[in-house]
Design a binder for these strands. Structure first.
Lengths: 169, 169
DNA sequence: GCTGAAATATCCTGGTG
DNA sequence: CACCAGGATATTTCAGC
């Protein structure tokens, strides 16, 4: 039983990572085109992608929407502070507020962080009121997003390699 | 010249929204299947989707990845405070740090907010150091993500209708 | 926006190193 | 065990209406 025993699952090789990168950039390209990019046949690509899906690495394929073009001109991050019991259930508590696009529970100064969209300042106020109405222990800090310079940047092989170096030094 | 003049672009109708919802849930389904869901023929679906793409409503199709399954066990939000000139260029300044997945410039208590991933606490420390090295005026608050209860929740027609009510009351 | 045909892509089976 | 090759099936795309 040597070190390789623990590495019996060779994790993901370079081609898997290339497929991940390509699919993060454009999820609708066909297996044939992906195969051209990673130098593999279409069925081989299909098999690898299926493995990545089954392993839970790829969790789905989603269309990216620009909320501004649908009239949601305002995006804001809302920092939440609340008591323990309320925090623990933040997810359930905001599920009824569709303007809340992201919801994360945090360890640190803030209990949770929400990302919300709104069509106007009046609408944002309305959303904030609905959040505050959840529980009296909640207090919020609202920060308007001026610009989103990066969003959902793809995980890349280059990044993984750099991380390896950090681990090893 | 009546009110309808300004509404000459009928914005997006119910079927467009249904297509958007379907594509946010699964970007890989074919036009035929989409057509079945919204009660339209495949070519009609293709044309609407193309219009949504050209209007910038749909900005792309991306595979959703679970960073944990690739060894990135840690996710953190980093609040940034820095001087005006530095803030204005946050996007460019962090572009060289691939662990920074999201970067938003904010109006309010914090100047910017980053979402980062890391493989370990040591790796997170390394990322933080690289961020601090950008400029001496930067100070940070790091918040570890305990749980992501919602991420990129889809924009829905129901939501749009509710917002309309807010505007009108 | 619908129908029908041509081109293309996907999926499945089998075969090879 | 992973990859490639081929044919059956389904999908996209472009005509014409």
């Amino acid at each position: 039983m040597n070190a390789l025993t623990f590495e019996s699952k060779p994790a993901w090789d370079t081609k898997d990572w290339q497929l991940l990168e390509a699919l993060q950039q454009d999820a609708r390209q066909g297996y044939a085109e992906l195969g051209r990019k990673v130098q593999l046949s279409a069925p081989a690509v299909a098999e690898r992608v299926k493995r990545l899906e089954e392993a839970g690495v790829i969790t789905g394929y989603r269309a990216a929407i620009n909320p501004k073009r649908l009239g949601y001109d305002i995006e804001a991050m809302i920092r939440l502070r609340c008591d323990g019991g309320t925090c623990a259930r933040v997810g359930q508590l905001v599920v009824g507020i569709p303007e809340v696009l992201d919801c994360r529970r945090l360890a640190g100064e803030d209990s949770a962080l929400l990302r919300v969209v709104a069509m106007s300042i009046a609408h944002l106020e309305d959303v904030l009121d609905r959040i505050l109405k959840i529980h009296s222990s909640i207090s919020t800090t609202t920060l308007i997003v001026l610009q989103t310079s990066h969003e959902n940047r793809p995980l890349t092989l280059a990044m993984r390699n750099a991380a390896q170096l950090t681990q090893e030094r």
